[in-house]
Design a protein around this nucleic acid. Structure first.
Lengths: 248, 248
DNA sequence: ACAAAAGTGTTTCACATACACCCATGC
DNA sequence: GCATGGGTGTATGTGAAACACTTTTGT
């Protein structure tokens, strides 16, 4: 794309968007026994960004979050929640940033201050289809305990999002959105531990989760692995809904 | 102020402000045994609004909230917390609203869509000095259990704010910000009850609050009233801070 | 004396915690 | 056999909930 074409793209984009208002999306998933968040790498740089986008003039915040999530993952109707709005004056000078990336980029329409609304999504990473972006060359899951260098205040956004998630996990069995169809109790425990950032007692965890009465134990066990084969469980949607409604 | 002068005021205002981004402030206080929220009445109408304002281009969200709070109450350095951002497309068509109020108002600079960031403040109503506004003629405390008709989605904003406050009260002894210097235990209980919207057990409340070890019992009791004179208490700032830090 | 409100104590129960014990599996 | 992980049971402690009892004060 030529710089002149890019200028035209920017012009049209920023005419359709709410000026200075973006939306950043924390897309959480549970992969390899760890809590991950979807990040994108700027082409040719060791600098990463959260997936985000602009809020369009004819689009509610929630719709914008759904669209951005769909654009980046191909997913629809997943758990999505607003958690904080970030508005420090110097948090995201996009014009300055893109000027450093490439001084030839057209800068007429770029904002120097962006207020960003933070949403987080809980997804099953097996169902995600990564997409491309004209500024980035790689999209991957990053371990929240070992994050790369991130643009602007995106590290703080992740920290705030995790804090919110942590506060919710006592009331919401978030596994429903993050685990595959069937899973073992030790797996679910690892998920909780990676969200809380600390170990929990095995026996007590099992008893507590089962007492919620939202899981069905399957006949099979997970065989093949070493040691004793653990039971497989599945969330029972009906019981799960009942539980959620009772809590709130 | 003439319409022409008003036009000039609008012009200057909207040049300095972030376009389409406002900030609404729920100012909570505890008065006459009930949780109140500060509302302002539009001149000559039975329609109310929350105190709000625009986020200036050189101002962070938190600074904007502090300024708006100061403008409306004269208060500085009070408890202030962001709780949600409201962004439905049709939530606040200011241009349309002001056209209905007065078709002669200059409308060139008015937005048709506003995204509003919700903050709530906890204040001692005895320290509040109400201010004037060119569109409103009355500023008062409204009982959250008996609200008047409110503009736009302000009723929903209040509902969401109270929900957040309710979720916080288990961890935060909010009385510190809302009660006067000294108070009785039954008073504090009434505060909690008006936030939670339900009665709580007297004996258990007393034991729980005292177990936090954040109050000093004073020598005096509140005399003059009927029946047994209750003890007076005061928040101990040092113990209070310790408690807050332990919780988070 | 009595009613109403304030303060304190007691019983019970739910739940989390700690930890012990047994089972299954691969080496 | 033994180390490791998985499943279950038990004892203990903490805190909430329910409620009884006592004290104080104005009428």
């Amino acid at each position: 794309m030529s710089d002149e074409e890019l200028r035209e793209v920017f012009k049209i984009l920023f005419e359709r968007a709410m000026p200075g208002i973006s939306l950043d999306c924390l897309i959480f998933a549970f992969q390899d026994q760890a809590l991950k968040v979807l990040c994108m790498r700027y082409t040719g740089q060791d600098l990463w960004t959260l997936p985000g986008g602009w809020v369009m003039r004819d689009e509610s915040l929630h719709k914008a979050a759904q669209r951005i999530l769909y654009e980046r993952t191909g997913l629809e109707s997943v758990y999505l929640k607003q958690f904080h709005t970030f508005g420090e004056v110097d948090r995201a000078n996009l014009k300055e940033f893109l000027r450093n990336v490439n001084p030839n980029f057209p800068q007429d329409y770029l904002p120097t201050r962006i207020i960003s609304i933070g949403y987080y999504a809980l997804v099953d990473y097996r169902k995600v289809q990564f997409s491309k972006d004209f500024l980035t060359d790689l999209t991957t899951w990053q371990d929240v305990a070992d994050l790369p260098e991130l643009i602007f205040d995106h590290r703080e956004i992740i920290a705030t999002g995790i804090k919110t998630l942590r506060a919710q996990i006592d009331h919401l069995p978030v596994g429903y959105h993050l685990m595959p169809e069937s899973f073992t109790m030790p797996d679910l425990q690892k998920l909780h531990e990676s969200i809380l950032g600390e170990k929990v007692d095995r026996a007590n965890f099992q008893k507590r989760i089962l007492s919620y009465n939202i899981l069905d134990r399957l006949e099979e066990r997970r065989t093949g692995g070493a040691y004793k084969a653990p039971f497989l469980y599945r969330f029972n949607l009906e019981k799960y809904s009942t539980f959620i409604n009772e809590e709130f």
